[in-house]
């Protein structure tokens, strides 16, 4: 089944157009990034708030989002009433809200392949759009796989354009070979895979392997898809493994930011 959802349908995107929030594409830094870490710093500089409205304060919300980019507040509600919720604001303006129960469910996404249909995908996709450009902290590999699959899924559905994927170590590609074989064989995507050369995968048709020894390639997990013929589907994930199995980073639908990450990767590590 083919499902498409353009970024313009999200409340956040329209809030941006109406002048509410920040515009990463217009931030003064201008993506003068010289390392992958610079992209993280730029996104960190924009600050939003998450307000948790609930009878008891759930610590897991604050635990999952970085305090430097997002301030997490709690406002108490009387006990034993309707379920609590979370409001995302930027510059004091409402961007979106989600029920606490739904948020909790979404933070434990199922693992799936890009071409599998997901009856439960709407929730995950909604969160993906809600938290666009929000710094996350201490996400584990499984939680990030949900976001990674969202990007592979978009690339799969659009079928054109460039997808760049950093696995940290090329051996991490081993369990994903089937995914990339199909992406290479069944789409017109230009696919680049990066990683430290601890294992040399067999050649995958239409997939260019970049064995790189730069330290950032070993510490960052990333995916960047330029949207191909549908630029509104551009998206990227950039996550730094700061301690074993604890990732810190962001994902974004900002076309300019995705373009800057793509440009950085191709100029630094070759086309």
């Amino acid at each position: 089944m083919v499902r498409r959802r353009a970024r313009g349908t999200s409340g956040k995107a329209s809030a941006r157009r109406s002048g509410g929030g920040r515009r990463l594409g217009h931030c003064p830094v201008g993506f003068g990034a010289v390392t992958l870490a610079d992209f993280l710093d730029d996104v960190e500089a924009a600050r939003g708030t998450i307000t948790v409205y609930s009878d008891e304060q759930p610590t897991w919300v604050a635990d999952q989002f970085e305090a430097r980019n997002v301030a997490v507040h709690h406002e108490p509600l009387p006990p034993n009433g309707p379920p609590g919720f979370v409001v995302f604001r930027e510059g004091g303006e409402f961007l979106a809200s989600i029920g606490l129960r739904e948020l909790r469910k979404i933070l434990a996404p199922p693992i799936r392949r890009p071409w599998q249909d997901r009856p439960d995908s709407t929730g995950y996709r909604t969160l993906f759009e809600l938290l666009d450009d929000t710094i996350f902290t201490a996400f584990d590999r499984r939680q990030l796989l949900g976001a990674a699959r969202e990007i592979e899924d978009r690339a799969w559905r659009v079928g054109t354009g460039t997808l760049r994927v950093g696995f940290q170590r090329l051996s991490a590609m081993w369990s994903q070979v089937e995914v990339y074989e199909r992406l290479g064989a069944e789409t017109a995507l230009s696919i680049h895979v990066y990683g430290r050369p601890d294992w040399v995968p067999a050649a995958v048709p239409n997939v260019r392997i970049h064995a790189e020894t730069a330290p950032e390639i070993g510490s960052f997990w990333f995916l960047a898809f330029d949207g191909g013929s549908e630029p509104q589907n551009a998206c990227a994930l950039l996550a730094e493994e700061r301690s074993p199995e604890a990732f810190y980073g962001f994902w974004t639908y900002d076309e300019d930011l995705v373009g800057a990450i793509e440009a950085y990767l191709s100029s630094t590590y070759g086309r």
Binding site: I98, R101, L130
Partner: peptide, 22 residues
Amino acid sequence: LADVVTGWSAAGRHGTATRADR
């Protein structure tokens, strides 16, 4: 008040609300 009523009402139903809903 609009932020709160929007988020709270949605939480018991489809879960999420957008800026347009608010």
